[in-house]
Computed example of a mutant assay.
Amino acid sequence: MPHARVEELPMETINVGLESSFNEVCKCFEDAIVGIIGLYGMGGVGKTTLLKKFNNDFLTTRSHDEFDVVIWVVVSQESDVVKVQEVIRNKLHIPDEDWLNKKMEERAIVIFNILKKKKYVLLLDDIWKRFDLLKLGIPNPGSQNGSRVIFITQSEEVCSNMGAHRSIKVECLTPERALELFQEKVGDETLNCHPSIPYLAKEVVAECRGTASCSYYCWEGYG
């Protein structure tokens, strides 16, 4: 069986408040001079869901022939280069004889020599600080190779430090949109089963400050 260029990721339905941010990412992605795109915003606002949708859309809305490989990596606060290299290695199906018993710098060369011949998309979730792409073995993305790197972070400063050509802020939901999301999750029957519940719903929405976390609270605390 041929190796899949992109793997579908499990995800929640993207809420209406993220549609404008998603469309902006798609627009930047189509710009040939934009190689690195950074998405930033407070935790719980829906950045990871947005990026997962972007990944999954390669299965339906983008040509499979347009890019050779789409790589999804969760970086996390530790920013462990070796672990990230392992994820990339598995996606590129690098054999043991080219990988084992090599140092981090040698593995970076192996990755680099493979990706420099490909048109790739690298999606990095949960970056907390500047992450050296060259140390991973990632060739510079841009108009010369047509490749892209998209990452998400909570900090606009990280976008700058990563050399993002475009930085997109993922905004919190408005109170009205957040209340709509809450109602969608709990359902009208639950929301109207007691006179105090609509009032409590507004309190939950205010507590979550327009983040997607209101769906968590409605199940764990108020559902």
Rank of each mutant, 00 (worst) to 15 (best):
R62V: 14
R62G: 02
R62A: 02
S63F: 07
S63K: 12
H64G: 14
D65V: 12
D65H: 13
E66W: 10
E66F: 12
E66H: 11
F67K: 12
D68G: 07
V69N: 01
V69R: 06
V70E: 00
I71G: 01
I71K: 00
I71M: 05
I71T: 06
V73P: 04
S76E: 11
S76V: 14
Q77Y: 12
Q77C: 06
E78Q: 15
E78I: 15
E78W: 14
E78Y: 14
E78H: 15
S79P: 02
S79N: 13
D80G: 05
D80T: 09
D80E: 12
V82F: 06
V82S: 08
V82K: 10
K83C: 05
K83W: 04
V84S: 00
V84W: 00
Q85N: 03
Q85V: 04
Q85S: 01
E86F: 05
E86W: 04
V87F: 00
V87Y: 00
V87M: 03
I88T: 04
I88G: 01
R89T: 05
R89W: 08
R89C: 13
N90G: 08
N90R: 14
N90I: 11
K91L: 04
K91Y: 01
L92F: 02
L92P: 02
H93D: 12
H93G: 03
H93S: 12
I94Y: 07
I94D: 03
I94N: 04
P95V: 10
D96R: 10
D98G: 02
W99S: 01
W99D: 01
W99E: 04
L100K: 15
L100G: 02
N101W: 02
N101D: 07
K102M: 08
K102H: 05
K102S: 02
K103P: 06
K103G: 12
M104Q: 15
E105C: 07
E106C: 08
R107T: 06
R107M: 06
